[in-house]
Amino acid sequence: NITNLCPFDEVFNATRFASVYAWNRKRISNCVADYSVLYNFAPFFAFKCYGVSPTKLNDLCFTNVYADSFVIRGNEVSQIAPGQTGNIADYNYKLPDDFTGCVIAWNSNKLDSKVGGNYNYLYRLFRKSNLKPFERDISTEIYQAGNKPCNGVAGFNCYFPLRSYGFRPTYGVGHQPYRVVVLSFELLHAPATVCGPKKST
């Protein structure tokens, strides 16, 4: 009989979020998941679920829940969905086509923008091939755009693969920082350890 609540607040209220190319993952297990707390949290810009209804989450049990978190621009949030393409979905964070879970995003301009620009948040701009679902690539190898080998030196046709967002408070909404948490639900042939409040007695 599990009684402790799942530590969703640790994920959602973290002081610093990860850059999207180096997205953070927390495994959540052996706890009671009260999703209504999240669902009623006012400032969400997006709360979209795939393969599961957000209002039914509290009735369900899962083997594991993974909480992935990172920061992207407002106009990139739409790429955090199954079957998407674009710089983020291709080179930074890719969801599987059969994704079961929820994508939760909110504007973090007050936290993550600075006058003069916040350059701490990076994304991958160049990559030889697209990421596989949930693949994480933190390499900083110089990207070779031409035929000539770069030998690890940036220059003509040789690019550092990461780019900084440089968030400023005055940017338009599409270019403002958004914090994103992706909850993915794993249902294995194993005992369920993460259940909603109704199922955990």
Rank of each mutant, 00 (worst) to 15 (best):
T15Q: 10
I72C: 00
Y39Q: 12
G116F: 00
E186H: 11
K198N: 14
G196Y: 11
V115H: 00
D9T: 02
K148F: 10
L122D: 04
V153N: 07
N4E: 07
S164D: 11
A145R: 11
F8I: 11
S113C: 08
V37K: 12
K199I: 12
V52M: 13
G146C: 07
N120H: 07
A18P: 08
N87Q: 02
V32D: 07
G146S: 08
Y143I: 04
L188P: 08
A42R: 04
F45P: 00
S164H: 08
A190R: 14
V77I: 05
V37H: 14
P7C: 10
K56S: 07
T55V: 07
N147R: 10
N118S: 00
A33Y: 04
Y35S: 03
N4M: 01
Y143F: 03
Y35A: 03
V194A: 06
H189K: 10
A33G: 11
T201N: 11
S200I: 11
K114M: 05
G155V: 00
R16V: 09
K199W: 11
L111V: 09
F47M: 13
F47Y: 03
G174W: 14
P149E: 15
S36M: 08
G152R: 01
Y35M: 09
K132M: 14
A33I: 09
G83A: 00
I28M: 11
Q144E: 07
Y121F: 03
N64R: 08
A154M: 11
L60H: 07
R163N: 15
K132V: 14
P197H: 11
D9E: 09
K114D: 00
Y35W: 12
I138C: 03
F45A: 01
A145I: 06
T193N: 02
I138P: 11
K198G: 06
P7S: 12
E141I: 09
N151C: 10
A33M: 14
Y119P: 03
H175W: 15
T55S: 14
F156Y: 15
G117R: 00
L187A: 11
L188D: 15
P54K: 09
K48Q: 02
L162M: 00
T140A: 12
R136H: 02
S129P: 09
G117K: 00
N147H: 09
S78T: 11
S129E: 05
A190M: 06
A192N: 01
V52F: 08
S184N: 06
Y39W: 11
S78R: 02
F44V: 05
L188Q: 10
N87C: 02
L38M: 07
F45S: 07
I2T: 03
G152K: 01
T100S: 14
F156G: 15
V32A: 15
L187W: 03
N30G: 10
T15K: 05
I138V: 01
G146R: 13
I142S: 07
N58D: 11
L5D: 08
K148W: 11
G83Y: 13
T201Q: 05
D97M: 08
F134S: 05
Q144S: 10
S200G: 14
T140R: 15
V173G: 10
L125F: 03
V153G: 12
N4I: 03
S53K: 08
N40D: 07
K110T: 02
K128M: 12
S29I: 03
V32K: 08
Y39C: 09
K132Y: 01
K128Q: 07
N157R: 10
D34N: 09
R136Q: 07
F44D: 00
T3L: 03
K132I: 15
V194P: 03
G74Q: 04
G152N: 11
T140H: 12
K110H: 05
N24V: 00
F47L: 11
L125G: 15
N130P: 05
Y123M: 05
K114L: 00
G166W: 02
A190P: 09
S139H: 08
A145S: 15
F126K: 11
Y66F: 03
G166K: 00
S29V: 09
Y121L: 01
D9W: 09
R27C: 04
T140W: 10
S139K: 06
V173L: 09
L111E: 10
S139C: 01
I142A: 12
S164M: 07
K114Q: 00
A22H: 07
I2S: 11
Y119W: 01
T170S: 07
R73N: 13
T201M: 15
N118R: 00
K48E: 14
P169E: 00
Y39A: 13
N40L: 01
S36N: 12
Y123A: 03
A22C: 05
W106M: 12
R136K: 03
N120M: 15
L125S: 03
V37T: 01
D59H: 11
N58R: 05
E10L: 06
R163C: 12
T170Q: 14
G152D: 08
Q144K: 05
G174I: 01
A14Q: 04
K198H: 03
F134Q: 06
N1H: 01
S129M: 05
L111F: 05
H189C: 13
D90K: 14
F156I: 08
Y123F: 12
T201V: 14
L60A: 06
T63K: 15
V103I: 13
